[in-house]
Simulated assay, not measured.
Amino acid sequence: MPAYSIAILAIFFSFALLELFRTNLLGKNEQTRDDGIVEVVSTVMLLAVTQPAVLFTSAWLAGTIAPQYAGALSGINVFAAIALFLVFDDMAQYWWHRASHSTPWLYNLHRAHHNARYMSVRLVYRNNLFYYAMMPGIWLSGVLIYLGLGWVYAGYIVVKLSVIIGAHSDVAWDKPLYKIKWLSPFMWLVERTISTPSTHHAHHGRHADDPAVNYKGNYGNLLFFWDILFGTAKITRSYPKSYGVENLAPATLGQQLMWPLFPEQKKLTEEGEAEGTAAKTA
């Protein structure tokens, strides 16, 4: 197993252990039987099949189309290489994520990630099985690896996943830091640079009238800076009262994992009917 994979697993299980002892990792409030199935299946498929297949296929396609460029960027400055991944992976993922909340068919591929009524490291890889296979950032990362930047990707992906794992955990690492007055200028910079539990939890909040919720924003994965730059940021230093999807009928297990092979349900729940018209992009 590559060193970067070991590092990512160590970070993931560190947060998982914190949740296990502090917030009941395996027994979250309002979780259902389907939640665990979706999380296990989507995580295993991504790590064992989808991501390796996409990276390999994109590098193979690049080699077939432009064999003369193999390793062409291997000698560039490390900061320039990191910038390429930030743009072609992280910024590309920002726009993919944003599109997933404004395009109905893409939202059906992303719905599983928001269906849980809790936050946890368990959600990091929770998505429809087709969602990551279509994600532009993974395909573009494969091309950059083909161009000779695999050595940078190994470090970049560790940093990125560290931020994403920490941002999804319900053991919010930023909460105690906000209470330290002399750290306020530092935290002001941090929360405008990377995704934090506060800013990312806002994106998972359930009710639009909750002041801590920004379901149509806070799309950043590694860098929250993209939300600042493109006008979708909301920073409150608080956390939503509840999590999940508002105004839609419950999603079946099949829909969460393999839409469009399993179609969405059309009928709203009684709660949804009381709250108003269904709105996938809300």
Results as ranks from 00 to 15, higher is better:
residue 124 V to P: 02
residue 216 K to V: 10
residue 70 A to N: 13
residue 256 Q to H: 05
residue 158 V to T: 12
residue 100 S to T: 02
residue 138 I to K: 03
residue 143 V to H: 07
residue 255 Q to G: 03
residue 213 V to G: 06
residue 262 F to L: 06
residue 7 A to Q: 08
residue 210 D to A: 12
residue 62 A to P: 01
residue 99 A to N: 03
residue 129 L to M: 00
residue 92 A to C: 09
residue 121 V to H: 00
residue 199 T to C: 11
residue 222 L to I: 01
residue 145 I to S: 04
residue 1 M to W: 07
residue 171 V to K: 03
residue 149 L to C: 05
residue 121 V to W: 01
residue 109 L to P: 00
residue 37 I to Q: 08
residue 196 T to A: 08
residue 201 H to A: 11
residue 262 F to N: 11
residue 274 A to Q: 14
residue 235 I to G: 04
residue 121 V to C: 04
residue 197 P to D: 09
residue 98 R to T: 01
residue 167 A to Y: 03
residue 80 A to P: 05
residue 221 N to V: 13
residue 160 K to C: 12
residue 278 A to P: 14
residue 80 A to I: 11
residue 84 L to M: 12
residue 163 V to C: 02
residue 130 F to V: 09
residue 259 W to M: 03
residue 34 D to N: 13
residue 155 G to E: 04
residue 187 M to Q: 06
residue 204 H to Y: 11
residue 247 N to S: 08
residue 49 V to T: 07
residue 35 D to S: 12
residue 88 F to I: 02
residue 263 P to H: 10
residue 38 V to N: 02
residue 263 P to I: 02
residue 205 G to V: 07
residue 31 Q to L: 10
residue 18 L to N: 05
residue 195 S to D: 08
residue 230 F to S: 05
residue 42 S to P: 05
residue 2 P to G: 04
residue 247 N to P: 04
residue 204 H to I: 11
residue 64 T to F: 14
residue 123 L to A: 00
residue 184 S to N: 13
residue 99 A to H: 03
residue 157 I to Q: 01
residue 50 T to I: 15
residue 258 M to C: 07
residue 5 S to G: 15
residue 220 G to P: 04
residue 88 F to E: 02
residue 126 R to S: 01
residue 9 L to H: 04
residue 244 G to L: 08
residue 64 T to W: 15
residue 62 A to H: 07
residue 191 E to M: 09
residue 24 N to S: 14
residue 99 A to K: 04
residue 145 I to R: 01
residue 2 P to N: 12
residue 21 F to R: 12
residue 183 L to Q: 06
residue 64 T to P: 02
residue 30 E to I: 06
residue 208 A to K: 05
residue 118 Y to V: 06
residue 31 Q to E: 15
residue 195 S to T: 14
residue 275 E to N: 15
residue 271 E to W: 09
residue 102 S to D: 10
residue 178 Y to M: 14
residue 22 R to Q: 15
residue 149 L to N: 00
residue 36 G to R: 11
residue 210 D to W: 12
residue 216 K to G: 11
residue 48 A to R: 01
residue 212 A to T: 06
residue 167 A to R: 05
residue 88 F to L: 14
residue 220 G to S: 10
residue 60 W to N: 12
residue 222 L to Y: 01
residue 222 L to V: 06
residue 149 L to V: 10
residue 171 V to Q: 09
residue 191 E to K: 11
residue 187 M to K: 08
residue 248 L to E: 12
residue 5 S to H: 12
residue 103 T to N: 13
residue 152 V to G: 05
residue 259 W to G: 01
residue 59 A to T: 04
residue 96 W to G: 00
residue 54 V to Y: 04
residue 179 K to C: 01
residue 25 L to M: 08
residue 78 V to Q: 13
residue 41 V to K: 09
residue 93 Q to H: 15
residue 88 F to S: 04
residue 205 G to I: 09
residue 156 Y to F: 15
residue 180 I to E: 06
residue 215 Y to I: 08
residue 258 M to P: 00
residue 223 L to T: 08
residue 261 L to H: 03
residue 129 L to I: 03
residue 115 N to S: 12
residue 183 L to N: 10
residue 5 S to I: 15
residue 259 W to T: 00
residue 7 A to N: 13
residue 272 G to V: 11
residue 248 L to G: 03
residue 56 F to I: 15
residue 93 Q to T: 11
residue 205 G to W: 07
residue 276 G to M: 07
residue 16 A to K: 05
residue 186 F to P: 00
residue 193 T to N: 02
residue 165 I to A: 00
residue 266 K to T: 15
residue 174 D to S: 10
residue 44 V to Y: 06
residue 97 H to M: 05
residue 232 T to G: 04
residue 141 S to Q: 06
residue 130 F to S: 00
residue 279 A to D: 15
